[in-house]
């Protein structure tokens, strides 16, 4: 069964995702060399569209597919059986429980285990897709991950365009080029607030690298 899922996943990314992101859309990646070549690593990106995850994933070679683990909200993606199957088996998400009331289990433990397995974890610290093409505040979960795994590189990635292509609440895809800016890894220096400030400021700097026409 696992082999069938892996094959489905591979075919989905090779025949649907890549033609979509690389031909219909098209990526302009600045500083591609800063992307980690292997796990364990954490990619931190801004979130505007359902396409964010697959776009990030298509910047890596297909053979790395089993190692790529986007973190996604359990309450959203486990709404029905088909969506759950798609999220877990095809996209390969690490489900996170946003509404965990009982604190018996650390909600981020799945991420730590994944990093220990040498995987590449993709995190959207804005929490939700929010307003199209606007950078929201970062939630501090990413600082907990960095604290627990101080030796793992945390690489910020800023993406522009996907919120125009497929924003929240829209089903029609309109092609635009996507600009991707990869930053330097943000080191953990023992201080949660300092880490979050450093991360936010590198994201803002990356966003300022591109000169984008208004989209109102």
């Amino acid at each position: 069964m696992n082999m069938v899922h892996n094959l489905c996943r591979l075919l989905f990314f090779a025949l649907v995702v890549r033609p979509l992101t690389l031909v219909i859309l098209g990526l302009n990646v600045r500083n591609r060399g800063r992307l980690p070549e292997a796990g364990p690593a954490v990619l931190v990106a801004n979130h505007n569209s359902h396409l964010d995850v697959v776009t990030l994933m298509s910047m890596f070679p297909l053979r790395m597919l089993p190692k790529l683990r986007p973190v996604a909200a359990q309450d959203y993606f486990f709404r029905n059986a088909l969506l759950k199957w798609f999220a877990l088996r095809i996209i390969g998400i690490l489900p996170i429980d946003r509404e965990m009331r009982s604190r018996r289990r650390d909600p981020l433990s799945g991420i730590n285990e994944s990093l220990q397995r040498g995987e590449m974890v993709i995190l959207f610290p804005e929490g939700s897709r929010g307003l199209p093409e606007q950078l929201g505040d970062f939630k501090s979960g990413v600082a907990h991950v960095a604290k627990k795994n101080p030796e793992v590189p945390v690489v910020p990635v800023f993406m522009y365009g996907l919120g125009k292509i497929l924003p929240r609440g829209e089903a029609l895809l309109v092609p635009f080029f996507v600009d991707v800016f990869v930053g330097e890894p943000v080191p953990w220096e023992g201080d949660r607030n300092g880490f979050m400030e450093h991360l936010s400021s590198s994201m803002t700097t990356l966003a300022a690298e591109g000169e984008f026409s208004p989209w109102e």
């Binding site: 098209g26 199209p132 365009g161 125009k164 924003p167 829209e170 029609l172 309109v174 092609p175 635009f176 080029f177 026409s213 208004p214 989209w215 109102e216």
Partner: peptide, 25 residues
């Protein structure tokens, strides 16, 4: 297609016009 996509990605467009741009494509 590439040229129109590059043009539309470059110029200011309005959020409300996504469907108009789709028709242009």
């Amino acid at each position: 297609f590439l040229a129109l996509k590059e043009f539309l990605s470059l110029i200011p467009t309005r959020r409300a016009d996504r469907r108009v741009l789709f028709w242009a494509y």
